[in-house]
Amino acid sequence: MEKEEVKKKIYELVEKSTGKKKLKSSDIQKTISAEAGISRDEVKDALRDLIDEGKLIYTYFGGSFVEIPPK
């Protein structure tokens, strides 16, 4: 699977969870790798890009989560 496609899947997952459940980085890695049949390292790599680009951010609320930055 192309990296851009993995990034899209990750973003959609985080977007879908917004307001319902905060996702940890490991939740995203487990879910996407199972869904897309790819390794966790590939998901981690795509997630890193999304964070570096500022499309997703880390937050802390008693634990570390990945979220969409506030507008």
Binding site: S25, I51, D52, G54, I57, Y58, T59, Y60, F61, G62, S64
Partner: peptide, 16 residues
């Protein structure tokens, strides 16, 4: 405390 956690690309190093 909480919320903000770092600079661009980082999820650690800053405690809001």
């Amino acid at each position: 405390h909480g919320g903000i956690v770092g600079v661009r690309g980082y999820g650690s190093g800053v405690i809001g």
